[in-house]
């Protein structure tokens, strides 16, 4: 399979503290890569480098290279707004913008120049359907997005990312704090999305990673311990620390 993202010798420090050290990694196109590891292992930071959201943090130092379709996205002068349009992100906490459901989805596309009302409506419907939210909200698109339940809000956030028509979707513990049914729905959504999107999923939930991903990267204290196909890692891990983690011997 083709590589969508290639990470080469990536190191990241914040206030002189190493968060990631010399990570090498590959994300295959149209697949789901799971990133797992205990708290503070650098998972979220790695994710936020992929769309350069790490730029918002002061006093950081990044070394190494990250290629998206062969283009180094860490090079200075890169248009980050265009990058972020290609690489969408869903956060650990659902954050609807304080406006209607429709406006939440239309927000990004509209600011990227899609003015045609009909086109926007199509885009909104398609994205909501992909996120399996359409049936629940189709009659109240003009209601405030804040009124949705937590699970619905998170699927709204996924739909909002999809409405940008990105190539890559980053998810940072998207089911954190959600009930099992909402979690299941989101996992199903991810399965159907991977046919046409490259997905990177950060999760603390080992079982979720085992259930939904194709490949897994295991991070510990900013180091990549093991990287391989999900099947391999969960059946025959090469490193003892990986084994310890998936069998629950870490905090």
């Amino acid at each position: 399979m083709a590589a969508k993202i290639v990470v080469k010798d990536l190191s990241f420090s914040y206030n002189h503290q190493r968060v990631l050290s010399a990570v090498n990694l590959m994300v295959e196109a149209d697949s789901i890569l799971g990133i797992m590891g205990p708290a503070k292992s650098g998972k979220t930071t790695l994710l936020r480098i992929f769309n350069r959201l790490c730029d918002l943090i002061p006093h950081v130092r990044i070394e190494g290279e990250v290629f998206l379709d062969g283009e180094n996205i860490l090079r200075p002068g890169l248009n980050v707004d265009r990058l972020r349009k290609r690489v969408g992100m869903v956060f650990d906490k659902p954050v609807p913008l304080p406006r209607s459901i429709f406006e939440n989805l239309a927000y990004g596309p509209r600011l990227h120049g899609i003015k045609d009302k009909k086109r926007l409506e199509e885009l909104v419907e398609r994205s909501l359907r992909l996120a399996q939210l359409w049936d629940e909200v189709k009659d109240r698109l003009n209601e405030s997005a804040m009124k949705l339940s937590g699970g619905q809000q998170q699927r709204l956030c996924i739909a909002r990312t999809l409405a940008m028509e990105p190539e890559v979707i980053l998810l940072d513990e998207p089911t954190y704090g959600l009930d099992p049914i909402s979690t299941l729905k989101i996992e199903q959504t991810l399965q159907s999305l991977k046919e046409s999107y490259t997905i990177v999923l950060v999760s603390n939930n080992t079982w979720q990673v085992a259930r939904t991903t194709d490949n897994v990267a295991f991070l510990l204290m900013g180091e990549l311990i093991e990287y391989g196909s999900t099947h391999e890692i969960f059946t025959v891990p090469k490193d003892k620390r990986t084994d310890d983690y998936i069998s629950g011997r870490f905090g």
Partner: peptide, 23 residues
Amino acid sequence: VPYELREVSFSLGVTRWQTVTKV
């Protein structure tokens, strides 16, 4: 204004100024 709203807006590839005026 919650910081997360800005993050969301940036993650959608929206520029800083657009984020300021729209969100």
